[in-house]
Design a protein around this nucleic acid. Structure first.
Lengths: 106, 106
DNA sequence: TTTATATATCAATAATTTCTGATATATTTA
DNA sequence: TAAATATATCAGAAATTATTGATATATAAA
């Protein structure tokens, strides 16, 4: 996972700066599961879980895994697991992120 | 810096999940400076800079440094620098953070 | 002495994020 | 066939964050 833009890093930090989404990642770390099961486990209304997981998925922090799928046709149940990201937050790394990324023309 | 509680981690992530505050850390990394100078450099109204820096200071992500201080009495100008934090964001670390921190009584 | 520098706060608004409740649809199990 | 499982969306409300503009105060420089 390559985070070249500071904007992308902000998006990822925003996604991770939420207790519900962190709990989701923690839970999916133990065992991949579908949104419905996740919602039940974390005691969340399904649409909320769906929304939060959608955000994580969109940023690539969580991925769809095909586990225990029903053969014969498309899978009815979608399983999710965390993707193996690693972000090291230090002042130096933050500084690098905000160094003029756009070189002056000529 | 010891982040034992998941709540503390969420607070820190929220503090870092903001472009203004990240730019502040990046700028203070180059050279410690006061809020006024920081506000000018980043083109922010002073109260906004004051507020954002206050948040970072409160969480210990930024610290006051006594540099170029006027001797004789207290310093008129307060200089700030990033403290040397390091947070590694991985699914495993997030999982650890949310493992039942409270052991059942007896 | 006037202007620029500097810190500190606050009230109100603006913007964003989060959450709830509703709807639609389909499959699977009892 | 009725209930539970499952995905997908949305509109609106609620809550939180971010921003602006105002005020007060003080020091330092021109």
């Amino acid at each position: 996972m390559n985070v070249s833009e500071s904007k992308d890093m902000v998006k990822i930090l925003k996604a991770l700066a939420n207790p519900v989404r962190l709990r989701m990642i923690a839970s999916l770390c133990e065992k991949p599961k579908n949104v419905y099961a996740l919602a039940k486990e974390l005691n969340l209304p399904y649409p909320l879980a769906y929304l939060h997981l959608g955000g994580l998925k969109k940023l690539g922090l969580v991925k769809e895994v095909r586990e225990e799928k029903k053969v014969e046709g498309l899978p009815t149940v979608k399983y999710y697991a965390p993707s193996d990201f690693s972000f090291v937050l230090t002042p130096k790394n933050i500084q690098k992120l905000f160094q003029r990324k756009k070189e002056a023309v000529k």
